[in-house]
Amino acid sequence: MDVNFSKQGDWTIIAVEGRMDTVSAPEFEKMVQERILQGSNRLIVDFSKLDYISSAGLRSILVAGKNSKAKGGELACCGLQGVVKKVFDVSGFHKLLPIFDSKEDVLNRE
């Protein structure tokens, strides 16, 4: 899985690409936690290029969401499609975290 971080205003955009699975999810979790500890706690995870997510990936998203909220921030998700969207829906994550069509929708919210 490729993870690409970028900044837009006080948001950190995390674009994930490929497969978020048992092996790659813990690495992702660690990378995001480092950013949160550095003070980036407003996060947008862009899933538009993610092909696959398993429960390990969901766990890492949940942990990132909890950690950013604990620091007074938030985690928004965008670009869900295909099996990734289905897994979010089946797992109830669509009600747990704010979901947007695109990162522009998050940025334009304010």
Binding site: S54, S55, A56, L62, K66, K69, V87, V90, S91
Partner: peptide, 21 residues
């Protein structure tokens, strides 16, 4: 599947997904 973010745990989610899919 219903708790708020702070209380949510993902234990058992993998097996649940298997049964659903």
């Amino acid at each position: 599947l219903t708790s708020e973010l702070e209380q949510r745990s993902v234990g058992g989610l993998g097996v649940y997904l298997v049964r659903e899919l």
